[in-house]
Design a protein around this nucleic acid. Structure first.
Length: 286
DNA sequence: GTAGGCCCTTACTT
DNA sequence: AAAGTAAGGGCCT
């Protein structure tokens, strides 16, 4: 039975938001732009999202409008006050330029499981390849969701991935990350990883749990913590953020990750995550 | 604790 | 066209 009914909902937004910039900021990899609409999955529903003058226009397989508004507000973290954030850091010239250039770039709150697997895939990869890998995974093992003329796929749960082998993932082009993912799936199925617990845990404890996983070190743990586990002090340092730290603040190129992280925490506290997102965007795309 | 080699491929550049 | 290099790191020694 094909479920292709869509419900249209508008979400008014009184916050800075730039849909395109946010969706293309390397946080999420499975949202596809089609004629001004971003098409993807949140939870168990498919969504097509378009920016309008007053906010967002939403078409979704979810018939419950109130639930849709709630999930959109949650996804784009619309309770985070970006204007206040800009104002508090406007004395920093480099950041101020990034804020002006990328106004409306928001952190996204995504599903922890998909986020974890996504960033394990990101290791020494590139965005086109990461997208291909994750879409292959979802299409092969995830439940299809029919949304008007489009088919999108729910990201496969640990149980849905329970039957995968390293060879299967190699076939999908995952490379050396294949082994990590199979191990993480088994770890999860064995009940040794409780992502919901990490959601309410503090940054340090949650990070310690994540870095126990194969393929998850300092950087990838910070991505998962920041983008899905509500840890806004998460400060992933990839090569772009590293270049910003070197060029803007005079850090050494071979500084230790932990030292840079501590410095960022003293400097920005729980604003570090948003700062990182603007640094990444500015240094990579300007 | 830490530096260096290695990992599997793909996408993009020269 | 073929070769080289970078790509949102992590693991092992």
């Amino acid at each position: 039975m094909v479920k292709n009914v869509t419900t249209t909902t508008t979400v008014d937004i009184d916050q800075p938001i730039n849909l395109e910039t946010t969706m293309e900021s390397g946080q999420v990899f499975r949202w596809e732009e089609v004629q001004g609409w971003y098409i993807g999955v949140i939870g168990r529903d498919g969504y097509a999202i378009k920016q309008t003058s007053s906010g967002l226009l939403i078409r979704t397989s979810n018939p419950d409008k109130q639930a849709t508004i709630k999930s959109i507000r949650n996804f784009f973290r619309l309770d985070d006050d970006l204007e206040k954030f800009y104002a508090e850091l406007q004395h920093d010239q480099s950041l101020r330029e990034a804020f002006q250039h990328w106004r409306g770039l928001r952190l996204i709150k995504q599903d922890p499981w998909e986020c974890l697997i996504s960033f394990v895939c990101s290791s020494v990869s590139n965005i086109p390849r990461i997208k291909k890998n994750l879409n292959s995974l979802a299409k092969a093992y995830g439940r299809p969701i029919y949304l008007a003329n489009n088919t999108v796929y729910e990201f496969p749960s640990p149980r849905q991935l329970s039957k995968i082998s390293v060879d299967d993932l190699l076939q999908l082009g995952l490379g050396f990350r294949a082994e990590y993912i199979v191990k993480i799936v088994n770890h999860k199925l064995a009940g040794k990883l409780n992502l919901q617990k990490l959601l309410i845990d503090n940054y340090a404890n949650a990070k310690a749990e994540l870095t126990k996983l194969p393929g998850v070190g300092n950087k990838i743990a910070d991505c998962v913590l920041l983008f899905s586990l509500e840890k806004l002090e998460g400060f992933p340092i990839d090569r772009w953020v590293m270049r910003a730290l070197v060029d803007w603040y005079g850090h050494s190129e071979n500084a230790r990750y932990s030292d840079l992280l501590n410095w960022a925490h003293e400097m920005w506290g729980t604003k570090a995550g948003y700062v990182q997102q603007y640094m990444y965007q500015q240094r990579r795309l300007s």
